[in-house]
Amino acid sequence: MTTLAKRRPAPPRHRSWPWCRLCSGIALDLGSTRTRAWTSGRRTILDVPTVTFPASPGEDATCPIQRGTIVDTPGTARMLDRLLAPRLPRHGRPLLILTTPVLGGVAYRAEARTAVEVLRPRTVLTVPTARAVAVAAKADLARPLLVVDLGAHLTEVTLLVDGAVTDARRTALGTSDLDDRTAPTRITDAVVAMVTGMLDQDHTPHTLHALRRGTLLAGGGALRADLTGPLGEGLRAPVRPVRAPHTAAVRGAAQLLRAAHAHPSSTQASDAPRHRPLHGAL
């Protein structure tokens, strides 16, 4: 007599990314004037002014991030909730990759993580903006690389060696400060001075090799010929604006997000959200 084998129950069907509750993700770049985000499954980048939504009628919208510092954490959270919560799967716990100013320090990361909790992330990974830019540019990180981020309110110069931040400088000066009375050379001179300081204090050949290789330019300022031309002349070295430099950081974070989903063992879901750096910063 033949015994029929007991049928095994069919395994639960895995919903495709991004609608799987455990596979949704957000790449986020919080700038002083623009916030840019990419959510899994979307083809376009959300690019909006960094302004708060009033908590109650009669209040004015304000700028919650100034010169690379989060000055209004609850306002930042309200902005993110309004912009991104409707774009996430219902009851989802997204993996969130957040770009951070290289010299933002622990204080910036703490305030940013508090703000993004409104999105109920299961894991928050932080990545230095310069590293995200290099990823977006598909740069060879096995060689030293200089990255200059010409933002609206902040300009950063970062040296990456083997993909890690080894030196960084910044100035609270950006393209929004340029007007009829302020020449673009004020920014280019500041960048040249920062790179010169890095060269003087680097007892290895890394900074010099990175400079000769060509400086990678990102941020909205990289779209301005009146900045990129004089900067190359001042550095006496080639400068290479990345494609769509104003969105390079969020695009790099999105690539890292896709890589994290492709290797989910490193970011398995848990009941409590986790927070850790994706790559070390100063």
Rank of each mutant, 00 (worst) to 15 (best):
G174L: 13
L84K: 00
G58L: 08
H203C: 00
T62R: 07
G232T: 03
T33S: 12
I70H: 08
D47I: 04
R122K: 10
R90S: 05
L4Q: 12
D189N: 06
D179F: 09
T129C: 12
D140W: 11
L160F: 13
T207A: 10
R82W: 02
S32G: 15
A183N: 06
M198N: 00
L282S: 07
A193C: 00
T267V: 14
E233Y: 06
H279L: 08
A152G: 15
S270R: 12
R258Q: 12
R42F: 11
S265I: 07
D47C: 10
S16G: 12
L146W: 10
T267S: 07
A249K: 03
L231N: 10
P238R: 02
P11E: 05
D81R: 10
R34K: 08
V148Y: 13
S16P: 12
V165C: 13
T69R: 15
A272W: 04
A115C: 09
L30K: 01
T204Q: 09
T35A: 08
P89T: 08
D29A: 06
A249G: 01
Y108Q: 01
A248T: 07
T166H: 15
E117S: 15
G234Q: 10
T158R: 06
P264W: 04
L256M: 14
T204G: 07
I97S: 03
Q201P: 00
G75A: 05
G92D: 01
R212C: 01
H206A: 14
V51S: 08
T182M: 06
L46V: 15
A237H: 05
L208A: 15
A260N: 01
I45D: 05
T99M: 04
A110M: 06
R113N: 15
T129E: 15
A115Y: 05
H279Y: 03
S266F: 05
A152M: 11
G58P: 09
A269Y: 04
L30H: 01
D202Y: 01
R7Q: 15
V124P: 13
L257M: 11
R109W: 01
A272V: 12
L80A: 08
A152V: 05
V135E: 14
M1N: 07
P238K: 05
L160I: 11
L103N: 11
R258W: 10
W19G: 00
A237S: 15
C23D: 12
D72E: 03
S265P: 00
A85P: 01
Q201H: 13
L223C: 11
G92R: 02
A183E: 07
T158C: 14
R143F: 04
T228P: 04
R120T: 15
L150S: 08
A281F: 06
